[in-house]
Design a protein around this nucleic acid. Structure first.
Length: 150
DNA sequence: GACGACTTGTTAT
DNA sequence: ATAACAAGTCGTC
């Protein structure tokens, strides 16, 4: 019951879905095999294409599977609430979940589904901060959403 | 801007 | 069980 498709953006954005939940989104140099079965997958592909086309899309409606600790789950859940085109700092996010910036950064690194869980909207107090798929991707995603301060 | 101290959950020893 | 680390931050020089 697994599905997959890719979007062309810079290189490729590969998306994997299982049992109606998004389980992996990765930035790769080659596309995955297309295998779309459900309406959800179809919709998500359209939404992602629109997103990379510059449209304001809200991905918080899509179910994701987070296979991680309670803490990481909590952090990522909080991240999903950040609206399109807005950014918050690691510190701010830490305060929302009652933790510290350092721990939050470490949790974000474990996000299996970038874009769907918009961890690129979490930035350092003075600068961009890190990104598991490379800071350049983070910069481009923010630019796409109309954030030019980085 | 560089450097150390502080932080807190995860990971390695 | 304990030490080392990380997508951070703050004060000080």
């Amino acid at each position: 019951m697994s599905e997959s498709f890719f979007i062309r953006w810079d290189s490729f954005v590969n998306v994997f879905i299982e049992n109606g939940e998004v389980i992996v989104v990765s930035f790769d140099d080659r596309p995955c095999r297309i295998n779309i079965k459900s309406k959800t997958a179809e919709m998500l592909k359209k939404d992602l294409e629109a997103y990379f086309n510059g449209e304001t899309i809200d991905f918080s409606v899509y179910p994701v599977r987070i296979d991680a600790s309670e803490f990481v789950t909590k952090v990522l859940k909080e991240v999903r609430k950040i609206p399109y085109g807005e950014t918050i700092t690691y510190k701010e996010l830490a305060e929302r979940v009652g933790s510290s910036p350092r721990a939050v950064g470490q949790a974000l690194k474990k996000n299996p589904v970038p874009i769907i869980v918009p961890c690129h909207r979490v930035v350092a107090k003075n600068g961009l901060g890190g990104f598991s798929s490379g800071v350049e991707v983070k910069r481009k995603l923010l630019k796409l959403e109309g954030v030019f301060n980085f």
